[in-house]
């Protein structure tokens, strides 16, 4: 029951978080920007529209929005916010779960026969494979070391310089995983620079609604995960940190430019090094 409430709450608030970040970013860059409720209106619009698919697309393309949406929901249900189902919040399982989403969208992108989608699939899989070790190391480095791989161990975390290192790694990885500048740009209209948007380029209408929902739920889940790393429990503290993180991401998006494609691996490697350093320090007995 609690799990369902948590799931629905995260899913319902995800468009709000997305809208708020978008509005904040517009303010930072001196534009009036859309209302923070715009994402909800977008859903209403997309839901009414018919879906258009490329000719000859297989059943995989038609299933992919559902799988991506299900992956995001599972991620939301796995967050240790008090309502997660016991075996779900497992760090290693989570990494594999995210891989399911990447795999299905990548395969579907190649199914559309469009060179743009293929390019996006290639880039998305490339960066996903580099994100995986960094994310695993960041979460494990933050989690109580060697005491199992349950996410709930994040809640009993002691805070200090080493966990800050792990968080730094997590933040970089989060930018990549949620398609943010400096790695990806959600608001680009130029196919050659798209990664996540390129993957879903051929989707439209209510199919696209599912895919956007998946991306937004994943975004909020990562923000909450970051908030858990920072605060370690308490609903108010969590919400506060999530807002701070969302603002931080918006600042990063305003201040930085998108880096060149082949500089992204260096960025991700930096995240990995932060996370691994925190684990190594912990292994050699440094306090949290």
């Amino acid at each position: 029951m609690n799990a369902l409430v948590q799931l629905l709450l995260v899913a319902a608030l995800a468009p709000l978080a997305h809208g708020a970040m978008k509005a904040l970013r517009a303010r930072f860059s001196g534009r009036p920007g859309p209302s923070i409720l715009q994402s909800y209106r977008d859903y209403a619009k997309l839901w009414c529209k018919e879906a258009v698919l490329p000719e000859g697309a297989s059943i995989i393309t038609r299933c992919a929005p559902g799988v991506a949406f299900g992956v995001a929901l599972t991620l939301a249900a796995a967050l240790p916010l008090g309502g997660s189902v016991p075996p779900l919040p497992d760090v290693v399982g989570l990494i594999f779960l995210l891989a399911v989403g990447h795999f299905v969208l990548g395969v579907a992108a190649l199914d559309t026969r469009s060179a743009f989608s293929g390019m996006a699939a290639s880039r998305s899989m490339t960066f996903a494979s580099l994100v995986e070790p960094a994310l695993l190391a960041a979460l494990l480095g933050a989690a109580a070391l060697g005491k199992g791989t349950q996410l709930s161990s994040l809640l009993t975390l002691a805070h200090g310089p080493t966990s800050a290192l792990a968080f730094a790694g997590f933040f970089l990885v989060m930018l990549a995983e949620t398609a943010r500048i400096p790695i990806d740009n959600q608001e680009t209209h130029y196919e050659l620079t798209m990664i996540h948007e390129g993957l879903v380029l051929e989707y439209s209408g209510w199919h696209l609604a599912f895919l956007q929902a998946a991306a937004q739920i994943r975004q909020l889940s990562f923000l909450l995960l970051g908030a858990i790393l920072l605060s370690g429990g308490g609903v108010l503290a969590l919400a506060g940190w999530a807002v701070v993180l969302a603002a931080a991401v918006s600042v990063v998006e305003t201040v930085f430019a998108k880096v060149r494609l082949f500089e992204v691996p260096q960025l991700l490697a930096t995240g990995l090094i932060f996370a691994v350093t925190s684990i190594v320090l912990r292994l050699f007995g440094a306090p949290a």
């Binding site: 018919e50 879906a51 258009v52 000719e55 992919a64 559902g66 380029l201 051929e202 209510w206």
Partner: peptide
């Protein structure tokens, strides 16, 4: 959840239009 959602999307397809056009 991923499998259930995929089945759900296929089920919606029975009631909602999906048009196919040449790839852009």
């Amino acid at each position: 959840l991923p499998i259930a959602a995929a089945i759900g999307v296929l089920a919606i397809e029975r009631y909602r239009r999906v048009r196919t056009v040449p790839t852009w």
